[in-house]
């Protein structure tokens, strides 16, 4: 029962969702629309489950002053402050002018925005270092990789486009690399990925793939 019912639910829900594509009747759409709503609510629930899990993992460490308890306290306190401000500001939380007072919007603008943007900007520095240390033309494949990368980098910016005589040809070669070989390779990856996703989807719906249901 512990596994039979979930497998049955997987089959029924999966078949109904696949049918949506083939049966464009409004009654059938109403059924799948309702199921999509439930799915959306459950996906949101999964996020909250992650939040509960996070607190379950970190709170005991903070209480018992375990390893890195200070950082974990920062995480939990910032989480609590953001949640408090978010619920306190309610529907007005995104209203213009809210950033002028200590609010949810203020936290977003002055705490989350710089942190998030800089976290991703860090990669610019690492990619420079990686390019310098590891990107070597050791064989034909690596040389081609290097040439394509340099061409795309150079011809995509004004300094490359503007080179007298060859600049416009470099742009054409860059566009050609993107439109032809890149297109061919991506399509091959797409076709492979699509076939993989279709077979995995079928395995899940038919109950052959059960890893999401966990062990006995």
């Amino acid at each position: 029962m512990k596994r039979t019912l979930p497998i049955l639910i997987t089959f029924v829900v999966g078949v109904i969702m696949v049918g949506e594509f083939f049966i464009p009747h409004w009654r059938y759409r109403a059924l799948t629309g309702e199921m999509l709503e439930w799915g959306i609510i459950l996906a949101a629930g999964a996020f909250i489950l992650g939040l509960i899990n996070l607190v379950q993992v970190h709170l005991p460490t903070v209480v018992q002053r375990g390893t890195d308890w200070g950082y974990k306290a920062v995480l939990l306190v910032s989480l609590a402050v953001t949640l408090t401000m978010g619920f306190a500001n309610g529907k007005e939380r995104l209203a213009s002018g809210m950033e002028a007072t200590f609010s949810y919007k203020w936290i977003f603008d002055f705490v989350y925005t710089p942190l998030s943007a800089t976290m991703f900007a860090l990669l610019a520095f690492y990619i420079a270092s990686a390019g310098f240390r590891a990107f070597r033309a050791r064989n034909a494949e690596a040389t081609l990789l290097l040439v394509a990368a340099a061409l795309v980098m150079f011809a995509s910016v004004p300094i490359g486009e503007g080179v007298p005589v060859i600049g416009e040809y470099l742009v054409v070669l860059k566009d050609w690399t993107l439109d032809v070989p890149n297109n061919a390779a991506r399509r091959a990856i797409f076709i492979g990925a699509a076939l993989g996703a279709i077979s995995t989807g079928l395995r899940v719906i038919l109950g052959l793939e059960r890893s999401h249901l966990g062990g006995e």
């Binding site: 639910i9 829900v13 109904i16 969702m17």
Partner: peptide, 23 residues
């Protein structure tokens, strides 16, 4: 397991037709 089965099946269903048609 019941809600997990529901959500995995819903994703599998939409993914299957989406990949087949769109890609």
């Amino acid at each position: 397991r019941i809600p997990i089965a529901f959500i995995v099946a819903a994703f599998a269903g939409v993914k299957l037709t989406g990949e087949a048609n769109g890609r």
